Structures are given as C-alpha cells and as structure tokens.
Amino acid sequence: MPPLTLVTGGSRGIGAATVRALADRGHDVVVGHRTGAAEAAAVVADAEARGVRAVAVRADVTDPDEVDALFAAAGELGVVTGLVANAGVTAHLGDLADTPVDVVRQVLDVNLLGVVLCARRAAQLMSRRRGGAGGSIVAVSSSAATLGSAHEYVHYAAAKAGVDALVVGLAKELADDGVRVNAVAPGLVRTGIHAGAGDAGRLDRVTGRVPMGRPGEPEEIAPAIAWLLGPEAAYCTGAVLRVAGGL
C-alpha cells in the first residue's frame, strides 16, 4: 500500500504545494481544511490527476473532536502513516500591546494548540507501542520562532517556538515507537497569509531582510517537508529544518 499522509491547511499555500509534492512521490493524501472548500476540491483533483487517491475533509484543528473526526475520515482511505501539521494563521500585524486578546488567543490556538492536538492524535494512532504501524510527523514552524517578529506578531513567533519545543520533546517520546517527529521552518514565503493578516504588501516591503534577496515560493518549501516524511530521512528526528533563504 502507498503511504497515506494527512496535510492540515492543505487547501492553499505551503499546504497545497505539499499535497502536490507528496502526490508526485506516490502518497495518497487527505487535504484538511477549515475554509476554502472549492480550493480544497481543486487540490484533491490535482492530486488525483497525479495518480493517487485524495480526499478533502473539513476540520477545525483547535477542536479535539474535529481532530478526531479528521483522522477517522483519513482512516477510511487506509492506515495514516504521515501527518503534516501545517494549518496556521497570523491574523494581525502590530505590536503585542495593540493586538486584541481574541486575536492573540486565535493565533495561539491555531498555530500551537492545533499542532499539539493533531500530533497527539497521530501519536495515538501511529505508535507501535499502542498498536500502530509507525509513521512520521512534520510540523510547519517558522523562522519567526527564533527571530521574535517584533512589531509584527510576537504572539505568532511564540506559538511557533512552542511548535519547535513540541517537536524536540515528542521526537524523544516516540523514538522507540517507530514515529519520527520533525519540523520545517520557512521564512518569508509568497502565500496568502500576509493578506490574511491585513497587509497584502508586506512580503515585498520586507524582502530586503532576506539574505538571498527574495521571498520563497511554496514549491520551495514542500520538498523539504516531503523529504522529512520519506525513507531518505529515516535517521532524522527531533530536527527543525530551516528553509528561509538565509533569514
């Protein structure tokens, strides 16, 4: 049977590019999404055109019941062997002192709690000690986790730093259970997340910070995620792979 990988936030940006990269490598894929049903359907059609099975499942990763339902729906295709915990949001740009509490909570919930809940469920299902077949978890972190993102979204940076800590600790917990846990930390990438935070021009404005002099493309992040899921990375766990143009 081909590997079966669940990608949260799979309807657009890095998530959609990851689905395509995995489909090219023979993975059956589950496209998790909260909004963008039409975009998710298009990603599924693209994956199927590449010769694999694919399905879109709507779920809010901050809701444990919906996370359980997401994995249950994925399980209808077969045994889930991979998780890409990619769903994320910045929602607001500005100093922390000017950021509404509800926005802070939303960003922490989606970017940290959502990853924790998805990784927790994946661990329950994949762990050989618990009767699973093993597998691989890749979280999508951010270069913000080490840069802090002052005057932009320090709460988002804090959430991504939490993701990095989760990866290190969970990798050690699951190392004997046949489950590898890693992360990819992109830098400035050309996706809709900037417009979603209310600043569509941010990417072009801050590109000068990047040593390579340009933003990345989702298609430049996805292969790193796919590599961490694959057999070539069999001895890699607890790593945070930075793909950020030198940032």
Results as ranks from 00 to 15, higher is better:
Arg180Pro: 00
Ala119Thr: 11
Leu174Pro: 07
Ala157Cys: 04
Gly134Pro: 02
Gly148Arg: 07
Arg105His: 15
His194Asp: 09
Leu96Ala: 12
Ala195Cys: 07
Arg120Gly: 08
Asp204Ile: 11
Ala133Thr: 13
Leu188Glu: 00
Gly201Tyr: 09
Gly201Asp: 15
Asp95Cys: 04
Gly134Cys: 02
Ala157Lys: 04
Arg202Lys: 11
Met212Arg: 04
Val138Pro: 00
Val168Tyr: 14
Gly75Pro: 11
Gly196Phe: 01
Leu203Ser: 12
Ala197Glu: 07
Ala133Gln: 12
Asp98Lys: 00
Ala122Gln: 09
Lys172Glu: 15
Val107Ile: 10
Gln124Trp: 13
Val104Asp: 15
Ala73Ile: 07
Asn111Asp: 11
His151Asn: 12
Ala85Tyr: 01
Leu70Ala: 08
Val103Tyr: 10
Thr146Glu: 12
Val101Glu: 15
Val179Met: 05
Asp102Ile: 01
Ala183Arg: 02
Pro186Asn: 00
Ser143Asp: 12
Val104Met: 14
Glu76Asp: 12
Ala119Leu: 05
Lys160Arg: 02
Gly82Trp: 06
Val140Trp: 03
Thr99Gln: 13
Val101Ser: 14
His151Val: 09
Asn86Ser: 10
His151Ser: 15
Gly78Lys: 07
Arg120Cys: 06
Ser149Ala: 15
Thr90Phe: 15
Leu113Asn: 09
Arg202Leu: 14
Arg202His: 11
Ser141Pro: 06
Leu96Lys: 03
Val206Arg: 08
Lys172Ser: 13
Gly192Ala: 11
His92Lys: 13
Ser143Gln: 14
Val80Arg: 01
Gly169Leu: 10
Val89Asn: 05
Ala97Thr: 11
Ala159Gln: 02
Asn111Val: 05
Glu76Val: 10
Val189Ala: 00
Ala145Arg: 02
Ala150Leu: 14
Ser143Pro: 06
Asp109Asn: 11
Val115Phe: 01
Ala139Gly: 07
Leu113Trp: 10
Asp102Trp: 00
Ala144Lys: 00
Ser141Cys: 07
Arg190Ser: 10
Gly192Thr: 12
Asn111Gln: 04
Ser127Gly: 13
Asp102Phe: 04
Ala161Tyr: 06
Val84Tyr: 04
Leu83Arg: 04
Val115Ile: 04
Met212Trp: 06
Lys160Tyr: 00
Ala195Tyr: 06
Asp102Asn: 03
Gly198Pro: 02
Ala171Thr: 07
Val184Thr: 03
Ser127Asp: 15
Met126Asp: 01
Ala73Met: 06
Leu125Thr: 11
Asp164His: 09
Ala123Leu: 11
Asn182Tyr: 01
Gly162Pro: 08
Gly198Arg: 08
Ser149Trp: 14
Gly135Ser: 05
Cys118Ile: 09
Gly187Arg: 00
Arg121Phe: 13
Ala185Cys: 03
Gly187Ala: 00
Asp177Ser: 13
Gly187Ile: 00
Gly169Tyr: 08
Ala73Val: 10
Asp204Met: 09
Tyr156Lys: 05
Gly192Arg: 11
Asn182Ala: 02
Gly75Cys: 02
Ser142Cys: 01
Ala74Val: 11
Gly114Phe: 02
Asp199Lys: 08
Ala171His: 06
Arg105Glu: 14
